[in-house]
Computed example of a mutant assay.
Amino acid sequence: MHKVTDHDIKNAKRIALEFDAAVIANDGNAAQKAAHDFQGLIATTNGENGSFGSFAADGAGRVLTTVLAAKAGQVPHWGQNGVFVLETKHGRALVDFTCPLDTCSSFGFTAIDLGMPFISTTGYRSHFYVEWPPLSVKEAAAAVFCEYAEAGEMVNIKIEYRQGRNNSLPDFAKPSCTAFQGIPTQTDDKGQIGFQF
């Protein structure tokens, strides 16, 4: 059982901001120190288990990263988790960013405008990031997305993935594209699919 206090949350926020500043300044030593300090805080506040189980449902790591997370729709900084809309010259994507203050962050890119070409036929692509570039999270996400888009042809999203993707989009990321989305809404007993326009 965690022992996270308001003072610990305040320290976690301070450490996360130090981590972000260090990444933007391209100061690897300061970023490593902030990451080490954060791991130490988690171990200390996780009770007698130390770091073991710290990201379980009632673990200190889970509590602290949840408190640190950016509000839905806002771009997080390094050291925060968050979900936001990314707009690029290759289209829009919902970005699910995870940054556990260590050397491996991840971006999850989900298509928003499902009738437009995307970087994956499933409408989703993940990317694990083992660098700390001197860029904002939004700039780094755009660089990764555009690299995928420009490395190969953008592809249409397969019809069987569109309904699930559409249903999982948060309100702040609803499709704005007027192009046909091709989202199946129902299938009758003869296998005829109806579409939503």
Rank of each mutant, 00 (worst) to 15 (best):
P133V: 12
D20K: 03
D6F: 01
G79P: 02
F52T: 14
A57I: 13
S120A: 13
L169V: 11
A70G: 08
G50Y: 05
T185K: 07
V4C: 04
T66Q: 10
G115H: 09
I119F: 03
E48N: 11
H127Y: 14
F197G: 00
A31G: 06
T122G: 05
S126A: 15
L135I: 02
L17R: 15
D171C: 00
L135H: 09
H36L: 07
N26H: 11
A21W: 06
N29E: 15
A60I: 01
R162I: 05
N81E: 06
Y124F: 14
S168G: 11
K71W: 01
R125E: 11
K158V: 10
S105F: 04
K10P: 02
K10H: 09
T65C: 05
G40T: 13
A31W: 07
K33S: 12
D58L: 12
T122E: 14
Q181E: 09
F118C: 07
I9G: 02
S168M: 12
G82E: 03
A72P: 14
K158Q: 15
Y148Q: 08
T103G: 15
T110A: 13
T5D: 10
A141C: 08
Q74R: 09
S176Y: 00
G53M: 05
K89W: 00
Q163W: 00
K71R: 11
I119G: 06
Q192C: 08
A25Q: 10
T122H: 08
E147Y: 09
N156H: 11
V23K: 01
D96W: 00
L94P: 02
M116D: 15
N156M: 15
A30D: 10
E160N: 11
F197Y: 12
R62F: 05
G123C: 04
P100D: 13
Q181W: 03
A143Q: 13
K13Y: 08
T178E: 14
V63L: 09
N166F: 15
F38K: 04
H2R: 10
G47L: 04
T110G: 11
E147F: 08
F197N: 13
Q32G: 10
A93H: 04
A72T: 12
F195K: 01
E147T: 12
A22Y: 11
I183A: 01
K138G: 12
G79I: 01
D6W: 00
F195V: 09
F197V: 10
F52S: 14
H36N: 13
N167K: 13
K158N: 15
I119W: 03
W78H: 10
E150F: 04
Y161H: 15
G194T: 15
R125A: 10
A22H: 07
A12R: 07
L17A: 15
W132A: 13
S105L: 06
S106M: 07
N156A: 13
K3P: 00
A25H: 08
D189Q: 10
V137N: 04
T88Y: 03
A30F: 02
H127G: 11
R62C: 03
Y129Q: 14
S54E: 03
G194W: 05
F109V: 06
G61Q: 04
